[in-house]
């Protein structure tokens, strides 16, 4: 084998490339390729490395914050830096507190929904695939196709689950579709696909509204509950513009209020209490 490795590396590379492409294609078709076992084993490592990344990032944020500090003398600079560190930590804690308080109040105002709170521990490095990894899995009751939300709207749907992690296909994914309704008129439609202007995400596109639907800018869009994956009534966004000219393409652009690049926590809807509903 060692002889072959030294004499024919190109053949080994070609065989490996073919096998890897087949593996990736199998993985993309949704078949079990056994990678879940490795992902589960690596999940704590991923969590640790993510925290290292955050700490390193926070360190640079703390060090490079205000430039006027650098003009002061050494003693004062150290004192200010210390204060900056404390302030940055306090600021970070306050921000985390605000995010979690917001999630908690959302949970309290939706007693019919059972949630699991999860933190984002990974994002795909492939810029054309839009998924995130959360640190909650089957041990917390998470299963495939569960809805993932924040108070600012729908994040996406669970696409893959391990014991302590799950992968979420986000609303940025081109194939992602959810059934929604206009809250004011109860007209139902389908939401999915990003609307871009100059490469910037403006919102998501709303399709298949009834022909005479009365939709206006500012209307609130919520999930309709059709399809069963997303519970009825979840906030999705507001109408930014109505496409009067082009029925047959899309009907309206709906705001996307979630900042996916900076999303840190999300709620996974693990059940709906019909009695309360």
């Amino acid at each position: 084998m060692r002889k072959l490795w030294n004499a024919r590396p190109m053949w080994i590379a070609l065989v490996a490339i073919i096998l890897l492409i087949v593996l990736a294609a199998f993985s993309a078709s949704g078949r079990n390729t056994g990678d879940g076992l490795f992902r589960t084993a690596l999940s704590p490592v991923a969590g640790f490395l993510h925290s290292v990344q955050k700490e390193v990032g926070d360190f640079f944020v703390r060090v490079f914050t205000p430039s006027e500090v650098q003009e002061e003398n050494e003693r004062l600079r150290e004192a200010v830096l210390l204060q900056q560190q404390q302030l940055a930590l306090l600021d970070e804690t306050e921000k985390e507190n605000a995010r979690l308080t917001e999630l908690l109040s959302y949970v309290e105002t939706n007693p019919n929904l059972n949630f699991v709170t999860a933190s984002v521990i990974g994002r795909d490095s492939n810029p054309y695939i839009d998924t995130i990894t959360l640190n909650a899995g089957s041990r917390s009751g998470v299963t495939e196709k569960m809805a993932v939300i924040t108070p600012h709207g729908v994040v996406g749907r669970v696409s893959e689950v391990g014991p302590n992690w799950c992968r979420v296909k986000t609303m940025c994914d081109e194939k992602m579709r959810i059934s929604v309704m206009v809250q004011r008129t109860r007209d139902e439609g389908m939401l999915g696909g990003l609307h871009l202007e100059n490469g910037e995400i403006v919102g998501t596109m709303l399709y298949y509204l009834p022909g005479k639907a009365d939709i206006r800018v500012g209307d609130t869009i919520r999930t309709s509950g059709i399809g069963g994956f997303f519970p009825k009534g979840l906030y999705v966004g507001t109408v930014l513009s109505v496409n009067d000219a082009g029925r047959g393409t899309y009907d309206a652009i709906v705001s996307m209020d979630i900042d996916f690049l900076h999303l840190e926590e999300a709620l996974i809807v693990i059940g709906v209490d019909e009695a309360i509903k």
Partner: peptide, 10 residues
């Protein structure tokens, strides 16, 4: 394994 949905592509 750490961050992409399709193992083997990278």
């Amino acid at each position: 394994l750490f961050c992409n949905p399709y193992v083997g592509l990278s």
